[in-house]
C-alpha cells in the first residue's frame, strides 16, 4: 500500500493523542490548572491534528461531514463518531479539571474507554480490509492499542507502566512482523486464484494493462522501499522501544532525557507505521505481477 504521509500522520498522531487523553482520563498524572492545560493541549493537539491530517487524504474534504452517516456499517464512520464523542467527553472533563479544578472521575473513565474505542475503530479501518491479509488479523488492533497505550504512558510520564510497555510493544511488533510476513501467502489468494487460471499452470504477468502506472498501482501496488524493510524494522524497534526503555531504565534524569525518549519513540512509530503501509500487500498486486 502507498505509505501516504497524511495517513501515517493521522494514525500515529491520533493514536498518541488518544493514548495520552486516555491516561489523563484515568487521572494519570493527576494534574490540574495550567499543567493540566498543557497536558490536555498536547493530547487534544495530537488527536485533532491527526484527524485533520486524515482529511488531506480525501479527494473532496469539503464533504467530510458526510462520513458520519454510515456508522452502522463503516468503521471509518464509526471512527469519526467515536473520535468526536471522545473529544467532547474529554473536552468537558478537561474543562472541569483546568478551569474548575474538578475531576469528574466517571466522565474521565468514560473518556478513557472512548479513547481506546476510537483507537480500536481506527485500527479496524485497516483490520477489516480483507484484501490486505497483513492487516486483516487480530494483531492489528492489538498493536494499534499497544502503540496508543505505550505512547500515552510515555507522554503522560507514567514511567512505571511505560517501561514494561516498551518491551511488550517492541516484542509484539517484532513477532507480528514476522508472522505477518506469511499472512499473504496463507490467505489463499495468489495469481492463480486472482485470474482463475491457476488450474492450468503457473501464472505470470506478461504485459500490464497500460504501459504506465495508474491509481491502483500507485495506491496499492507500492513496492518501492520494501527492500529496505529489514533495516527499517531494526531502526524502528530500537527507536520505538529499546532506546526509550534504556533511557528510562538507565538515564532517567529529567525532562531532556524524556524529550529524547519521546522523539525517539515518535521516530520509531513513524517508521513502523510507514512499514505498516509500505509492506502491506494488496491482492490487486496479483493482477500487476507484484507477487
Amino acid at each position: 500500500m502507498h505509505p501516504a504521509p497524511s495517513i501515517i500522520a493521522f494514525t500515529v498522531l491520533s493514536g498518541l493523542g488518544f493514548g495520552l487523553l486516555g491516561f489523563l482520563g484515568l487521572g494519570k498524572p493527576d494534574v490540574s490548572g495550567f499543567t493540566a492545560f498543557v497536558f490536555f493541549f498536547i493530547g487534544f493537539g495530537l488527536a485533532i491534528s491527526g484527524l485533520i491530517s486524515s482529511t488531506f487524504h480525501l479527494g473532496n474534504p469539503q464533504r467530510a461531514l458526510k462520513a458520519f452517516s454510515q456508522w452502522r456499517t463503516s468503521w471509518l464512520s464509526r471512527e469519526g463518531w467515536l473520535s468526536v464523542a471522545t473529544l467532547i467527553v474529554m473536552g468537558i472533563y478537561a474543562i472541569g479539571i483546568i478551569f474548575f479544578h474538578t475531576r469528574f472521575a466517571i466522565l474521565g473513565i468514560l473518556g478513557a474507554l472512548l479513547c481506546l474505542a476510537t483507537v480500536f475503530a481506527t485500527s479496524m479501518i485497516y483490520t477489516q480490509i480483507k484484501t490486505v491479509p497483513r492487516w486483516n488479523h487480530w494483531s492489528t488492533p492489538v498493536l494499534f492499542l499497544l502503540y496508543s497505550i505505550t505512547g500515552g504512558a510515555l507522554l503522560s510520564g507514567q514511567v512505571w507502566i511505560a517501561e514494561p510497555l516498551f518491551l511488550l510493544l517492541g516484542a509484539a511488533q517484532l513477532v507480528f512482523w514476522m508472522f505477518g510476513d506469511n499472512l499473504f501467502a496463507d490467505s489463499g489468494s495468489n495469481m492463480g486464484t486472482a485470474t482463475g487460471l491457476g488450474s492450468l499452470g503457473k501464472v505470470r504477468l506478461f504485459e500490464g494493462p497500460h504501459s504506465g502506472g495508474n491509481y491502483l498501482t500507485r495506491e496499492m501496488v507500492h513496492v518501492v522501499g520494501r527492500k529496505h524493510a529489514v533495516k527499517l524494522r531494526v531502526i524502528s524497534v530500537f527507536c520505538l522501544a529499546l532506546l526509550p526503555w534504556a533511557i528510562f531504565t538507565f538515564f532517567n534524569f529529567g525532562h531532556a532525557w524524556a524529550l529524547l525518549a519521546v522523539i525517539l519513540h515518535l521516530i520509531g512509530a513513524f517508521v513502523s507505521r510507514w512499514l505498516f503501509f509500505a509492506q502491506a500487500e494488496h491482492t490487486v498486486g496479483l493482477y500487476y505481477g507484484a507477487r
Partner: peptide, 14 residues
C-alpha cells in the same frame, strides 16, 4: 463521495 479511497482498498480486484 469524499474520495477517501477506502472502497478501492476494500475491493480485491482493483
Amino acid at each position: 463521495c469524499i474520495g477517501c479511497g477506502l472502497c478501492a482498498w476494500a475491493c480485491p480486484y482493483g
